[in-house]
């Protein structure tokens, strides 16, 4: 399939190095110490931060730094099919861990010993269609019962059980960005604004910020998280394989994307601060 036309446009009209529309809003949950909604195209994530506060479970208390906890979940209405999303499944645990580690790397935990910071991230809307229609797609394909098709049963297997993982992979970047914004809103001291963005490789072209269709194409998908001003990588994940020279290009592109997101988040924060300043009337 053609994911980048010869005119250099992707299926949704973007060029290879363009990101989806970003939108961010600070202060969505008034009870929390800090909160934010972050949108990347059709993916919408809400994050709430509580803390630093007293450690609830004393046995977990760390004497020289803060305890960072993270909980990730998907809202039941986030995808087209109304299926109850299990909370403690392995994928959610994994992504909670990813977010926690990324955030721990940028929070100055040593300033807040014997305290706890809770980050709650929930996906309100995930890009893409439900797993049902994905299966039906493969059924509607070979009307022609030709031996040619019969030879390659292995090619059509891409759908199936991978669906859950796909959602998680696609929402990973948005979750980290939302968490960063919420932490900043909560006023928690950080080394830098940790941001994340993904990039893929399809039709021999590195593509920034894959949408649902591109992500389900089966190409490699590189998710990068960085601390932009410190120029440090805090997260690097890739499913599928890429030759090293291509991987470097793709990662470079994802890093550029992270920097662009960092700029945007900074703008949003500055705007928010101006608003606060204005309300205080000083």
């Amino acid at each position: 399939m053609e994911y980048v036309s010869p005119e250099g446009l992707r299926l949704d009209g973007r060029r290879p190095t363009e990101m989806r529309q970003l939108r961010a809003e600070i202060g969505a949950v008034s009870k929390a110490d800090g909160s934010a909604v972050f949108e990347m195209g059709n993916t919408k994530v809400i994050a709430a931060v509580y803390g630093p506060r007293e450690v609830q479970n004393r046995s977990q208390q760390i004497n020289d730094q803060a305890l960072v906890r993270c909980e990730y979940s998907m809202a039941n209405f986030s995808t087209g099919d109304r299926v109850r999303k299990p909370k403690g499944d392995r994928r959610s645990i994994e992504i909670s861990l990813v977010i926690r580690q990324t955030m721990e790397a940028c929070i100055m935990t040593h300033l807040m010993p014997r305290s706890q910071i809770d980050i709650f991230v929930q996906v309100l809307q995930a890009d893409g269609v439900s797993s049902y229609s994905c299966v039906s797609l493969s059924c509607s394909l070979p009307l022609i019962d030709h031996p040619h098709f019969m030879n390659y049963p292995k090619n059509n297997q891409s759908c199936g059980g991978m669906e859950g993982a796909d959602y998680v992979n696609r929402t990973r970047s948005a979750c980290i960005n939302a968490a960063t914004l919420a932490l900043a809103d909560a006023g928690i001291p950080m080394h830098d604004l940790a941001t994340s963005c993904s990039a893929g490789y399809l039709n021999s072209t590195p593509l920034l910020d894959l949408n649902y269709i591109e992500d389900s194409a089966g190409g490699a998908d590189v998710t990068v998280g960085i601390l932009p001003t410190l120029d440090k990588v805090t997260l690097l994940q890739m499913d599928a394989k890429l030759p090293t020279n291509i991987f470097e290009d793709v990662m470079q592109l994802a890093t550029e994307g992270c920097k662009a997101i960092a700029n945007y988040i900074r703008e949003v924060l500055v705007e928010n601060t101006k608003q606060l300043e204005y309300r205080r009337g000083s």
Partner: peptide, 27 residues
């Protein structure tokens, strides 16, 4: 970089599902 964001709603047969896809319009 981005100009506009329009939502295309599509239904597909077999099991009817709503599909939301972004289209980025450019100048």
């Amino acid at each position: 970089m981005l100009r506009c964001n329009v939502f295309n709603k599509k239904t597909r047969n077999n099991k009817i599902k709503k599909e939301v896809r972004e289209v980025y319009l450019r100048d």
